[in-house]
Amino acid sequence: MEAPLMDYTSPQFPVTRWTLLHSLREGSAEESKHALEILSRAYWFPLYVVARKRFSEIDAEDAVQGFFLNLLKRDLFQQADASRGRLRTFLLVAFESYCNHLLKRENTQRRGGEAEHISLITVHGAESRYIKHAEASTEDTETLYNRIWARTVLETSLQLLSQEYARRGQSPRFQLLVVHLTQADPEEELQASASAAGMTAEAYRVALHRLRKEYRKKIELELAKTLDTAEPSLIREELNELFRAFS
């Protein structure tokens, strides 16, 4: 099958991005578990959306679950040339091919006994999110997948940030600020929120500015994890990817 995503493959995405898969395959049990956690956090739901376009709710869930197991079992890696392209693209191509494989096979074999042993993070509420974000979408699989991935990164990062505020005992503050995170709202609304928070408009704006900076750090951290690098230029490139997913 001609990989549909070859546009994105280019030598400027170095092998470093593949280290995660490498640890998944070759690392110790601990390393492998950690890698799986990161991968599934970022990609479980995007892949579920792709699967849902072809399977029922239950079968889609099984497909994603099975796919990650197969990643562990390494039997998919022969199909991709790991020296080219990015991880995200590889995962999609590999997953689509895995789904094709499933369709050809009898359903019965899909539920592996090992599934109970790994806990995947983003399973909960997947179907309702799918209905909200993707069911009506007419975009091609790749666009949809990238968009869902990008949204997942944004959500996960903000969720992590909210937990940080909670730890600092600043949940109410987070709640008041986050609604204007985009700063796209009219000035009047900002001012209304500021006075609701008992702050001056300027103080509110500064706090918002700080929140956004913290948010960016969280996003960068998430991206760094899937890229397995903290190299600023690569992070920046990945941020651009996030943006492109919505344009």
């Binding site: 944004l154 959500e155 709640q175 943006f243 919505f246």
Partner: peptide, 24 residues
Amino acid sequence: PDDFTDLVKSVIFGNESRLISQIL
């Protein structure tokens, strides 16, 4: 202690490109 999952999602949904461009 404080789960803002829904709030977080509602802030992000539909505003992604604006959010990212601002961060950029």
